[in-house]
């Protein structure tokens, strides 16, 4: 298998500096739904201008380039260890080239490693699949938005909701309200229902790879995604928390089997700078695309 380091650097550069069209389209639409002259309208104007400038000058959309989260899908026979090493090398090069801010600090001491590598940093997930080619997804998950994520055990004394779709709805509404504008609204919510604490949150984050304009194959979840999108916007928190019609650009949900004793609802908050791209390596050709 060919060395992917240089291609991975390109993937990081593209993800950090070039916002995906589905997100840009949603931000443009959001701007038309805000009253001209308001702070919300102005904020979206500044955001869209920033997106264009970052693309034009190949500079990071946001100075917080976050935790780089990679997801690798590979055919039988590919070495996970080799790919992990190439990812580590690529992250280090991309940091040197200012596409990433050095963000990896030791948990307790706060000491910065300087090149975005460290204990389990960056995050890499692996999945073997039936296809003959490799695909690498990358998401840059900023710290401010990550701090707005949360997890509910349903029901609990603090959260007396029911173990059904309406209980899920209540959890997501609570999470959106608690976040206010702090996660750099308008954000995107990924929701995982069921699983254990870890698998549930992972499922929530995986939803953030979905296109904003897709439909959920599960009709009940599809209806709830659209309803929650509408209802969260009715909260009126607005871009940056300035008040306004757009608090989120979308809600994406999925479920996992759980043990009878547990019912988790996990909510991952992604900022408007929803940076994620997918690279495909097929017959020696490398393409980088938005989801």
């Amino acid at each position: 298998m060919q060395d992917l380091t240089n291609h991975l650097v390109e993937l990081i550069k593209s993800t950090s500096t070039d916002l995906s069209p589905d997100v840009e389209t949603a931000l443009t639409a959001a701007r038309t739904s805000e009253e001209p002259g308001t702070a919300a309208h102005g904020a979206l104007g500044t955001i869209l201008q920033n997106v264009e400038m970052s693309r034009g000058t190949a500079r990071p959309i946001c100075q917080d380039t976050g935790t780089p989260i990679f997801h690798v899908w590979y055919p039988v026979g590919v070495s996970q260890r080799a790919i992990r090493e190439q990812i580590q090398a690529a992250v280090s090069v991309a940091t040197e080239q200012s596409y990433l801010r050095p963000n990896a600090v030791e948990a307790l001491s706060g000491k910065n490693s300087g090149d975005n590598t460290g204990e389990d940093f960056p995050t890499v997930h692996f999945d073997e699949w039936e296809h003959e080619y490799v695909q690498v997804g990358l998401m840059l998950k900023g710290g401010g938005s990550e701090n707005c994520g949360c997890q509910f055990s349903v029901p609990s004394p603090e959260f007396p909701a029911s173990r059904d779709i309406n209980g899920v709805r209540k959890a997501v509404l609570e999470a959106a309200h608690k976040a206010q504008g702090l996660g750099c609204a308008p954000g995107i919510l990924g929701v995982g229902v069921g699983g254990d604490r870890a698998s549930s949150m992972l499922k929530a984050k995986e939803q953030l790879f979905r296109r904003l304009d897709d439909n959920n194959p599960d009709p009940e979840f599809d209806a709830m995604e659209k309803r929650l999108h509408r209802e969260i916007n009715e909260l009126g928190i607005g871009p940056m928390g300035f008040g306004g019609a757009t608090t989120v650009l979308g809600v994406k949900m999925a479920q996992l089997h759980r043990v009878p004793a547990s019912f988790f609802v996990s909510v991952a908050y992604m900022c408007w700078a929803d940076r994620r791209k997918i690279m495909t390596i097929k017959n020696g050709n490398v393409t980088i695309e938005a989801p």
Partner: peptide, 8 residues
Amino acid sequence: IGGAATLI
């Protein structure tokens, strides 16, 4: 505007 790092 949070995230508007290039513009600022």
